[in-house]
Structure formats: C-alpha cells, structure tokens
C-alpha cells in the first residue's frame, strides 16, 4: 500500500506533495484550534498517533495466507475525524519511513494523499452514513474500515497508473487494480473484522472514552459536516 521510495517520477512526487499540503495544513489548523481550547487533548492526539503506528506494525494473517498490516485508518478516522487523522497519518508515515523503512521521503506526498486523506475521509463518511440510516455501530465500523482500505488501494492504483501510463492511463489502471484486487480485497476484509473486534471491546470495556471523544472533537465534526451535508 505504501508507494516505495524512488518509485514515482519526480514530477508526480511534487504533484502529490502539492495536493497533500493544503489538506494537512487545514488539519494542523483544526488540531491547533482543538488543542488551544482543550490543552489536554494534545497528549491524547500524540498517543493516538502512537497507537496507529503500533497497529500498523501488527502482522495480520489473512485468508490468502500472506500477511499484511492493518492501517488503523478506519478506526482513527471514526474516532477522531478525518482532519486530525490527516495530520497524525502524515507524522505516522514519516515514522514508518524512518523507523521501519515502509514508504519513503520523496513518495511521502502520494502516500499521505492515499492513506492519510482519501482512506480516512471515505471511512468517516461511510461510518456517518451508516449511523444516519440507523445501522449498528459494528456494521458501520466494519464497512468504514473495509471501504476506507479499498479506496486507499484505488487511490494508490490511480497514482501508479498516472505515473506509468503505459500504453494508456486506463489500461495501466486496470493492470494495477487487478493485482490489488487479488491480494488486497481479502486483506481489507480481514482488517475490517479486526477493527470490529477492537471497537466492540472498547464499547464493552470503556464506553465513556467513546463518549468523551465526541466532546473533544466538536469543531472537527462540525467543520467536516459542512463540507458534506448529505451524510452528516
């Protein structure tokens, strides 16, 4: 899922940095606002980032026999909203590059767009949508994690086929998405199941944390609700 260091031509590295930057900047402004109002949320945000990092270093067994890493995108976005997760995701990606050699520095922009922005935002929309139509939280979090993952892969496939449009963008996209479909569709479902288990335990053991979270991030929820009135 991470695009490796050196994989993208420099023009596309630059392009994805330019796309990612305003969103992350917006997230930084949001986080600044929240931490100014509630100073106690700063260590909590940091710790959530650390949690996402640890989650992404767990190896997840999947049906195909291979292993993959959960991204923690779905869970993070549902708990904290997509704006905060875009910043945390960017920091986590830097740590993953420097501590685990996943991803890279020049491809950081592209990875932030797919894993820090598109995935979490999709997951958050799905969760809110299902909440709206009255689905159970378990189904909501499952679909949020799965669809968030899938859209991350679709974004990555788009990024790769834009960088290598041989012979055309369309045919390159089909090739990349087919490879992902074989390996990643089951992995996304596996992550969805794991996220449900995690979420259920948190609801069972400490429901107050989930209630508090809504108190911590009212600004974020309000902001993003404005952008997508149909689901919020």
């Amino acid at each position: 899922m991470h695009i490796m260091e050196g994989f993208l031509p420099w023009q596309w590295c630059l392009f994805w940095y330019i796309i990612a930057l305003p969103v992350v900047a917006y997230g930084v402004i949001q986080i600044k606002k929240v931490t100014d109002e509630h100073p106690e949320s700063k260590p909590l945000l940091a710790i959530t980032g650390a949690f996402i990092f640890i989650l992404s270093s767990l190896k997840l067994p999947s049906v195909t026999g291979s292993t993959s890493h959960p991204t923690g995108n779905g869970l993070g976005a549902v708990l904290f909203g997509p704006a905060a997760v875009s910043v945390l995701g960017a920091i986590v990606l830097v740590f993953q590059a420097l501590l685990l050699a996943h991803g890279g520095i020049t491809t950081l922009g592209a990875n932030i767009v797919s894993m820090g922005i598109v995935g979490p935002f999709a997951a958050w929309l799905v969760y809110k949508g299902i909440q709206k139509v009255g689905g159970s939280p378990s189904i909501g979090i499952f679909l949020a994690a799965v669809i968030g993952d899938w859209l991350t892969y679709v974004t990555t496939a788009v990024q790769l086929s834009l960088a290598f449009p041989v012979p055309t963008f369309g045919s390159a996209f089909v090739k990349f998405i087919l490879i992902y479909a074989y390996t990643q569709v089951p992995l996304a479902i596996a992550e969805g199941l794991l996220t449900v288990v995690i979420f259920d335990y948190i609801i069972k053991l400490r429901p107050d944390i989930l209630r508090t979270l809504k108190v911590i991030g009212p600004a974020k929820t309000g902001e993003t609700a404005e952008k997508s009135p149909e689901v919020a």
């Binding site: 949690f51 989650l55 794991l194 288990v197 995690i198 979420f199 335990y201 944390i209």
Partner: peptide, 13 residues
Amino acid sequence: MGLLASNLFIRTW
C-alpha cells in the same frame, strides 16, 4: 489480536 489492540487503546488513553 482484537483484545490486544483494544486493551492497548484503553491503556494508551
């Protein structure tokens, strides 16, 4: 794994 991750989340919190 779910137990581990959720317990970790609560502890981290």
